[in-house]
Design a protein around this nucleic acid. Structure first.
Lengths: 342, 342
DNA sequence: CTGTTAGCGCCTTCAG
DNA sequence: CTGAAGGCGCTAACAG
């Protein structure tokens, strides 16, 4: 493995010149720059990560903190991770994956101070996220996938679940539904301030309010059986419910079963829209479920780019990015057809 | 950030003693060892990754190469990745995620030679896997999740799909099925030598042969619509088919639809077992699908452990590990009840 | 069993 | 614009 010294010799320059040529830290005459790069090419030179990390400030390694959520992991997350990893690589960064728990603040602090990474992208952001203080104190650049209650000075990218929920209410109302319910994640997740849960619900509430419709909300564990049971609770609140919006895709088959047991057919008697899920999940269900899909790949990319720009001190224009979700109509939503009491 | 020098001073020993105490490279008296560790604790000392990597041979960073497969990603993979990441961490290693393509051999070679990682765990192993030669040539330790045609001298852990398939044939035969089909991934994936595809099919063939049953095999893209169409092809081959084994979970809803259109009910008229999928997918379908589930978390853990043992030159007893899959009976499989032509 | 010391490869002042 | 030299924190000889 050739070193900088070899490159310097071959190019007939000083070793520091090579360094500057590589990092662009200082102007170099075009001619010598060429020579240096040619030498690097010839020798197949690759800067040594460790030496660089030791001597300089930068490691060119970033972390993706993905505390595996209790609600389980969806394909959404994989798309996201893959896109983040690719983006890092394209920018010449390595990406390490941290999966330890959210509450493991000590672990996080340690890793943060270790200096291994130049920055971190945080997934699974909560309204009051403890990680932020740690990174701020340590002066470590970070970007968020999701947003907190107070977003001052933060850099984030997030799917606009609030808007998505409002749009979904609107979509269902247009189909003639006047009693639209909302099925959230579990109460515990909501109370902990899980962003998508909080904001989707807020959007739903705004949506039904604007449309002058009643609001019916239930929380539910991310399991089929919980979904099965929760339809009863929803109908106890509003017996005339003909449509349901949810961000809890795991519970959906249960809801469908429960609907089937009442003799309802989907979508003729009951419509269902899942926010935040993706095609590969939606198409497994019968009928395939109408979804509002977040732009996962774009989010992964932007999250990493936001971080790298920050690390490299580049100008940042849009540091708070909300991306729209896409409504994909499949077989679980349609016009309101149910007859009441006739 | 305290350094080794600080620790040495505080413990009243030489700096090298600290180093040896940490790495266990050399015997240290219990007493001084205690002192050193106490000092480390007090100061909150953490070894600097870069210095370590520069000076020694080890970086304590490993890579997980996960070339995102064309067939899409399942939850299986996430479980796996999470478990690998955790195991690495528990052993004091960082894990970087490489997601670039299988065919991108240049990229792989570069990263390999860069010396960033002490070793790599390879996912998505094919029968004739090109990566092996690269790592062997570079003298880089690696372990495989999956196996190749020739496993001499390799360290791997894999789910025993061949056995699983045989067992599944047996299970269905016991239920009274005498015409059991097999639905593989796409022909392209099979021809490329994708391990699970090849071995599951082999197991299926052995199974039906042993039981004296006819063999019916089709290849199929990993999409719902492909699944829908392929049931026809299967029935064209064997009109008496009453059960189907598959490793193509994405296609299953299509198969179910096609069965429904024939007026068949599952499992009364047609049984379906998915090998290699996991609960969270199976339960989304209607009815929930009987699966044969690989021990993902265990595989992730073992894959990393195998690698680390190798890196650290520890004794290795079981370096070729086949783990059994678990049959989880859900609603898609049952006794053969269909009447033929009556 | 412990201490001393020369690098590992690169970045970054400094002086030219 | 270029060159020389110190040091980042640690490992691994080499001495004792």
């Amino acid at each position: 493995m050739p070193t900088m010294i070899d490159v310097a010799k071959r190019a007939g320059v000083a070793i520091s010149t090579v360094s500057y040529a590589i990092n662009g830290t200082r102007p170099i005459s075009e001619e010598t720059r060429q020579r240096v790069f040619a030498a690097m090419e010839d020798l197949g030179y690759k800067p040594n990560v460790f030496a660089r990390g030791l001597a300089g400030k930068r490691s060119r390694i970033i972390a993706l903190h993905f505390p595996i959520p209790e609600r389980g992991v969806g394909l959404t997350e994989i798309e996201f991770i893959a896109s983040a990893a690719n983006t890092a690589r394209e920018n010449g960064y390595e990406m390490v994956l941290w999966t330890f728990e959210m509450h493991d603040l000590d672990e996080l602090r340690q890793l943060t101070q270790q200096g291994l990474v130049d920055g971190v992208v945080a997934m699974e952001v909560y309204e009051h996220d403890q990680r932020i203080a740690i990174w701020r104190d340590a002066g470590l650049p970070f970007s968020l996938i999701g947003l907190t209650a107070n977003t001052d000075g933060l850099r984030f990218v997030e799917a606009d679940f609030e808007q998505a929920a409002q749009d979904t209410v609107h979509y269902l109302a247009q189909l003639g539904h006047t009693h639209i319910g909302f099925l959230n994640q579990s109460r515990a997740v909501y109370d902990a301030g899980y962003g998508p849960g909080v904001r989707t619900q807020r959007g739903y509430e705004k949506g039904v309010q604007t449309a002058g419709l009643p609001s019916t909300i239930q929380y539910c564990q991310a399991t089929v059986s919980a979904g099965f049971e929760t339809l009863d609770s929803l109908l106890a609140q509003d017996p005339d419910l003909t449509a349901l919006i949810t961000i809890n895709d795991r519970a959906v088959p249960g809801v469908m079963q429960a609907a089937a047991e009442r003799g309802w057919r989907i979508p003729d008697d009951f419509s269902l829209v899942v926010i935040g899920s993706s095609a590969s999940i939606a198409e497994l269900m019968t009928p395939p479920v109408t979804t509002v899909e977040p732009p996962n790949a774009a989010m992964g990319r932007l999250g990493v780019e936001l971080l790298i720009q920050q690390i490299e001190d580049q100008e940042q224009k849009n540091v708070q990015i909300m991306l729209p979700c896409t409504l994909v109509i499949r077989g679980s939503s349609g016009p309101c057809r149910r007859d009441f009491g006739k």
